[in-house]
Structures are given as structure tokens and as C-alpha cells.
Nucleic acid binder design. Structure first.
Ligand code: ZN
Ligand code: ZN
Ligand code: ZN
Ligand code: ZN
Lengths: 132, 132
DNA sequence: CTTATAAATGTTATATTATTACATAACGTT
DNA sequence: AACGTTATGTAATAATATAACATTTATAAG
């Protein structure tokens, strides 16, 4: 059972925008798009983004400084994320692969470090771009 | 046999600094440290960093916007990288694990995408920070 | 050695991404 | 109502990264 988070006004506006876009969005692009809705300052955007990341509704694509709506419905918090990124068209999608996530969640090495979180980004060419 | 790259003057200054630091360094911290050696502008630093990343002498820690010297001696180009990051002390080390790298390099999913590169960042508490 | 080409450098300005600091308002609980 | 927590508004600024252009140095042919 997934905990229901009642998004605040700004959080909802920004989540809906990212979700509808279907892909990754950058903070200042989000800002431009929500100015007509009264969100005028970067900080308002970053605060909403921080919260949305915290509760797992969106994830940050670190290599792109961009944010994407969670496509898994299962990511309550962003502690195990994997993405595939096309280096040509910059299309991004979230990888949902049980074997992979199990493998990584259970990963341990000799360092004595306890891993509580990971983020994995795969790069390559998507089907479309490969055939061009 | 590893291809020998003759680093240029700026590349050598900047690589030596990062390497000696033993940990991740940020671009503007690098800049500050090499100003006495005549490197005065951000672009000079970023150009050297770009090249060093390209030839695999350093890697970028995307979640931290920082650069670390390759600790593997085997990363000719940065196409398969994995790091462990302590969220308390921000200590970073490169993971060298044959099984892991084989698993990820061979990873394929149903998307039809051909992966040529990946970057993985594990987060947690290092031994030291755990025992505090 | 000269010419051509690619790689690296120097410099200024600017773009992009993200946070600090402080004041106020709304929400959820008792 | 009173309290603590979360969210908002606003201005200023910090931190990260790139564009544009001129010049120099290294590498390789001919
Ligand atoms: Zn997700
Ligand atoms: Zn593509
Ligand atoms: Zn390496
Ligand atoms: Zn630590």
C-alpha cells in the first residue's frame, strides 16, 4: 500500500507539468512554464522538486540536471533508480527490472560500506537513433 | 597495453592536483588551487577536465559535480564507472569489481537499446561514519 | 624545413544551475 | 485557540558551466 502524499499547490503544479511532458525537464524550463501560474522564483521550483524527489514522485537525472516523473509507480522513495539515456536524442526512460534492482540492492563489496541507495545511468543509442 | 597520453601542460597540472588530493575535487576549487600556476579562467579548467575524462584519467561524480582521479588503472575511457559515496563524510571511492562490471556491461533489456556506457553511484555510510 | 592540420591555450563575457537569508502564510494536531 | 510543522513569497547571490574569438603550440606530411 503506497502512502498517499497530499501534494501542496506548487508541488502539484510542478509535478503535473513534468508528468505531462513525458520526459525529463530542467528546473529553469519548469520555471518558465509555470510563471503564468504564479510561480515566479527559482527557489519555489527547487523546493517543490526537492520534496517530489524525497517522496519518490520524480527522480533527478544527475548527468543531465533534469527531473523526470517516476514511471514505476513503485518508487516510494528514490533509493534505487536506474535510467536509460539516449546520447543522441536525449530520450530518457526509467528501467524497471527486478533482477537488476535485486542485484544492485544486494550488492556488497569488501569496503565494509553499507549501501542504502544507488543511482544507475546507462547511455547509448535508442532504437530510433540507431536506425538513422 | 595502455595507450600513453602525453598530457599537455594544463592537463598535467590539473591531473596532478586531483590525483594528489586523493579524493573528489570541484572545478572551482581546482581553479583556486592552480591560479598560482597561471591557470586563471574556469574554461581552462573545464577544458582540461573534459580531456582528462575523455581519456579516462579522471571521472566525474555526477551527483556531486566533482572529479576524481581514476583508481583502477584500467579505465582507458570512462565508459563503465561505479562509485561508492558516503553521505556523511562525502568520501568517494571507485568500485573495482569484475562481477559487477561484467553484469552491467552485459545488461540488456526489452527496450531494444544498445548500451555503450554506464555510471553507477552507490550511497551509504562508510565504516568510519557508521561507527560514530 | 615548410606547409598544413589538429590540439591546446588565453581572455572576456555570459549562460545555467542552485542556495542563503529572511519574512509570512497555511496546515494539522491537540 | 495554541502550537509545531510545512509550505510559500521575495530578493539577492553563489556555484557550476559554456560561447565566442584570437592566438599559440604540437604533430605529421610532403
Ligand atoms: Zn521511479
Ligand atoms: Zn535516441
Ligand atoms: Zn576508473
Ligand atoms: Zn563517511
Amino acid at each position: 500500500m503506497q502512502k498517499e502524499h497530499n501534494l501542496s499547490k506548487n508541488q502539484k503544479i510542478i509535478f503535473d507539468l513534468i508528468d505531462k511532458s513525458g520526459g525529463p525537464m530542467k528546473a529553469y524550463s519548469i520555471l518558465f512554464n509555470v510563471q503564468k501560474k504564479g510561480i515566479k522564483a527559482p527557489l519555489q521550483v527547487y523546493r517543490a522538486l526537492d520534496k517530489l524527489v524525497e517522496i519518490g514522485k520524480i527522480h533527478k537525472i544527475e548527468s543531465r540536471n533534469a527531473f523526470i516523473a517516476c514511471q514505476n509507480s513503485s518508487c516510494q522513495i528514490s533509493k534505487a533508480t536506474a535510467f536509460s539515456i539516449c546520447e543522441s536524442c536525449e530520450n530518457v526512460s526509467e528501467i524497471s527490472n527486478t533482477k537488476l534492482s535485486k542485484y544492485l540492492s544486494n550488492f556488497a563489496d569488501s569496503s565494509g560500506m553499507k549501501y542504502s541507495k544507488y543511482n544507475l545511468e546507462f547511455f547509448g543509442l535508442c532504437k530510433k537513433c540507431k536506425s538513422k
